[in-house]
Design a protein around this nucleic acid. Structure first.
Lengths: 203, 203
DNA sequence: TTAATTTTGTACTGATCGGTAAAATTGATG
DNA sequence: CATCAATTTTACCGATCAGTACAAAATTAA
């Protein structure tokens, strides 16, 4: 158990910044998927050798899971932060526009790594696939809870089924991830987002 | 160039039905993706040896592309057939309900192989990924043309942007594929489809 | 029967896969 | 300076990857 910044430790100090290195792994997994990324690719991009990678992150699978953790916590994550908007409409607006901005951003791979990381894979990688499915379902459920809260707050009509609405928004977000993979621009995705927002149930 | 049924040929006859065998390859690619499927997996499920596979289908990449061709032409394909409905609304209704039915059908892998086959992959498989992107864009463009026809027919309002509407529907369909991968049932997907249909622009 | 032709099963190729053993290197501690 | 602990580099492991050489088997044509 090593802490990220160098704790006062004996022995040779770690020559790389763990979080920064993990970010490079994330970028690679994001672009090429879990099975499309090899350890040689990883060590090359991360700038470390395999034994360093294994001692710092465990193995390929654990490295991936840690990269996904970083993905959801990184500064320009948009999903969970959007949940803090004041009304259901504003939550969805922030979420869809955030998705349009980020998913087609050329500074990093297109789409969402939670969708692209391991949508289909061999049975050997089932653990990773299941972890991503769980992330997606967790996000959807959190959104459902947010909609239920909005109904209590009075900014989302009572007749709306929060489970179905959150599934619908989740569907659009995941579809936008595929669209970004198709080469859709932020502008293209904004148009889709607006279409959803125009029909969003009003209080 | 061998034709599918046995042409009158010299030499030892082919011991397997090419299209049927291709169907088994499709099922495997569909479930595990292009890179998640190995030649050993393929030969095992197809019931043939590697030299037979190579002489009949070329190589792994060409086998995949032929499997995708089969996918779009198989009896329970839903996308292009839906295009023949009489109005834009009916086209979309048929498309979304067909997707809900087929994508969560337990008789075969969930979702759409055009989305799941190679969403992310190593650069070595870029050809396959690009082929799938092209399929998705082709489908979306065909839908756009259908919407433009509907506007001429008078069953879709003129003010609607056919390009944006087709992108929106494509987004939902692709999102439904991910939802099916998450374990969503046909019922779940129907609810999403209904949500889209309720807000679909009326003539 | 024999020759020609095609597919079959077996066994193999070099390359790469994820993962690790072992020794050299680095730095803090005494 | 010597000791100890951790990380580094180098080299390797068995397994699997996609793809193929080759000869036995099966069929038609002569």
């Amino acid at each position: 158990m090593t802490t990220k910044t160098q704790t006062v430790c004996r022995g040779r100090p770690c020559a790389f910044n763990k979080e920064e290195t993990l970010g490079k792994a994330l970028e690679l997994f994001w672009r090429n998927g879990y099975e499309g990324t090899s350890l040689s690719d990883l060590t090359k991009v991360m700038g470390i050798n395999k034994p360093s990678l294994y001692s710092a992150f465990g193995n390929k699978e654990q490295l991936f899971l840690q990269a996904i953790d970083l993905y959801e916590k990184r500064p320009d994550a948009f999903f969970y932060p959007a949940m803090e908007q004041k009304t259901a409409y504003l939550v969805v607006q922030s979420m869809l526009r955030g998705a349009a901005d980020r998913m087609a951003n050329a500074d990093h791979p297109q789409g969402c790594v939670t969708v692209h990381g391991a949508l289909s894979c061999s049975e050997a990688s089932a653990t990773v696939k299941d972890a991503l499915v769980k992330r997606r379902l967790d996000g959807q459920q959190a959104l459902q809870k947010r909609f239920e809260q909005a109904q209590q707050d009075g900014d989302l009509p009572q007749h709306v089924d929060a489970a179905i609405l959150s599934r619908y928004i989740g569907t659009v977000l995941q579809g936008m991830s595929v669209q970004a993979n198709n080469g859709a621009s932020t502008e293209d995705l904004y148009a889709v987002a607006d279409m959803v927002l125009q029909n969003f149930p009003k209080a």
